[in-house]
Design a protein around this nucleic acid. Structure first.
Lengths: 142, 142
DNA sequence: TTACATCCTCTAGCTACTGTAGATTCAAGC
DNA sequence: GCTTGAATCTACAGTAGCTAGAGGATGTAA
């Protein structure tokens, strides 16, 4: 039986995060000691590991909820899990493309900075003048 | 003189976002009509364009605050602006490296999914088993 | 004048946590 | 058994960067 602190250590999670997952229903309510402290078993350890690993791969908590649900029903078709993973892959690829464009522009900015007064600073100039910008404008977030 | 709606259109910003920028002191309090509606001039248009362009390049609002301050003082040294841009470039490169690793793993997951029952689903299996994971664990976020 | 788009303020919500305060519990050492 | 100190408990507030909605006022064209 694990305390919440030990579970946290084993999974690389913060204690508060575990309680948060419980609160939003991603983790089940665990057993308690007489004094009211949470105690966890292997099932919970596995579930939390699954969640953390998925988070590291960039899945949203909602996506993880679906994946956990699929994982709980081995007789269901695998298609949905596959679709979620593909969606995630597409998102990652979009973000990468976007970051690549940003990197190009940032590199150009930094390269051209001559190191004088801000009045002649290329960095600020580029930010001021949108027309030299190559990136598209729909979305921010990186 | 621009209404807030027209300023929003010209800069690709939402009206609420402009008011939010004003609230946090990133945009100045503009003049008002007798009826209390905001009216903007060219200075504000320029400033908002600068902010939006910087956001598109991934700068945080705090970083933008610094950049605007530098931009307002042409006699200052350019070094700080350069440093901020370099910091941003480093961040972008870190994120790209991370996304690259994620993409590799997601591709592997999706590739190996044979499309049967979830009981045999590679996607879920990979998420369950952390040991095959190549990514490092310090940070989530994309 | 009337209709209607746009504007106003205020408040709450989003994601995924993180931090704090003040009280309680657990486990180890004596 | 008692003390001590780390870990736990609940509850609430805060983070970034917006976004959405209610309910009412204003601006403008026909």
């Amino acid at each position: 039986m694990l305390t919440i602190g030990n579970l946290a250590k084993k999974t690389g999670t913060k204690v508060q995060t575990i309680r948060y997952y419980e609160q939003i229903g991603l983790m089940p309510e665990p057993g308690r000691t007489e004094g009211g402290q949470r105690r966890y078993g292997d099932a919970e350890l596995d579930r939390l590991s699954f969640i953390r690993h998925s988070r590291q791969l960039g899945f949203s908590l909602d996506a993880i909820r679906e994946l956990l649900d699929l994982s709980d029903h081995p007789e269901k078709s695998c298609d949905e899990a596959d679709a979620i993973a593909r969606r995630q892959l597409r998102q990652v690829e979009q973000r990468m493309a976007r970051l690549k464009a940003l990197r190009t522009e940032l590199k150009r900015m930094v390269h051209e900075c001559s190191g004088g007064r801000t009045a002649d600073c290329r960095v600020l100039e580029v930010l001021r003048d949108h027309s030299e910008c190559l990136t598209d404008h729909d979305d921010i977030g990186a």
